[in-house]
């Protein structure tokens, strides 16, 4: 099995977000960057599949600035065999990113291409699916359970009020959701071994794309609350407020 995992470097989910001077992106000063948490599920799936098969190759592909080399090495430390960095500042348009990644993966003989279901920075939730479309491969997105056997896969994805069960032949693209596995921590030996594993860098240039970020702002402050009423008779009014005013249910 030859497996690719696509990885993105993102701010730590605990990072405090400060809008940068351009008013369109975050101020990266002092922000810690980590592998996208959903991509860690994809990494774990790839490593576990190779371990189970006892043979094969796992490759991590990241699109990003040179700083993403460190993120790639985290994946290598977990156990991925080699890395490829597509050097680019990225794009707000997921399709442009997908085209660059598809270009890298095309014709390389991958049996399985794994992504996280989305990146926790831009919440775009699309690149994996788009890569599959561009490569004309079967794709199952947001997978919470995966079985690969005999050149085919079965998968489950959570949908509203149920679990969808899907199947397809390999080669295929899968984007991973929580639940699919528990990602391992890299071992200290793995961290030391990672620097000896191959990491190839290639510049790519993305198209202008059709999506432009015009501003980035912090969400509005919380407003003072209100007591809806007393006792169970206040419940219908509460539900109504949650539905129409707060729009959370």
């Amino acid at each position: 099995m030859k497996i690719a995992v696509c990885l993105k470097r993102v701010p730590d989910t605990t990072a405090k977000i400060v809008v940068g001077g351009d008013g369109k992106s975050i101020d990266e000063n002092g922000v810690k960057f980590v592998p996208n948490p959903y991509d860690e599920y994809a990494l774990e799936a790839a490593i576990a599949l190779k371990e189970k098969a006892g043979a094969g190759e796992t490759v991590v592909v990241a699109l990003g600035t040179d700083a993403a080399q460190e993120t790639i090495r985290t994946a290598l430390a977990m156990g991925i065999d080699r890395g490829v960095l597509l050097q680019s500042p990225g794009s707000a348009d997921g399709f442009e990113v997908a085209k660059a990644i598809a270009g890298e993966l095309k014709g390389q003989g991958y049996d399985l291409i794994l992504f996280g279901k989305m990146a926790v920075d831009d919440y775009n939730h699309q690149v994996g699916v788009m890569v599959a479309e561009l490569l004309e491969l079967p794709c199952v997105s947001a997978v919470s359970a995966l079985t690969v056997e005999g050149g085919a896969l079965t998968a489950e994805r959570e949908i509203e009020g149920g679990v969808e069960q899907l199947a397809c032949q390999l080669p295929a693209v899968v984007t991973a959701d929580k639940g699919i596995n528990t990602p391992r921590l890299p071992s200290l030996k793995g961290i030391m071994a990672a620097k000896k594993k191959p990491l190839e860098t290639k510049p790519v240039s993305l198209g202008a794309g059709s999506i432009t970020v015009t501003s980035l702002a912090l969400p509005p402050e919380r407003q003072a609350g209100k007591i809806v009423g007393e006792g169970p008779d206040a419940v219908p009014a509460l539900v109504q407020l949650l539905r129409t005013e707060a729009k959370v249910i």
Binding site: D12, T13, T14, K32, P37, Y38, E70, R73, T74, A77, V120, K178, P186, L188, I191, M192, A194, K195
Partner: peptide, 29 residues
């Protein structure tokens, strides 16, 4: 929902930017 939103997580103390003189492996470890 994001993974691991815990904001109370320990993030270290590095007032003098000593991270910048640690190697990537040292930081990863």
């Amino acid at each position: 929902m994001p993974v691991g939103t815990a904001t109370s997580q320990f993030t270290g103390v590095d007032f003098y930017h000593l991270d910048s003189v640690l190697s990537e492996e040292e930081r990863a470890i």
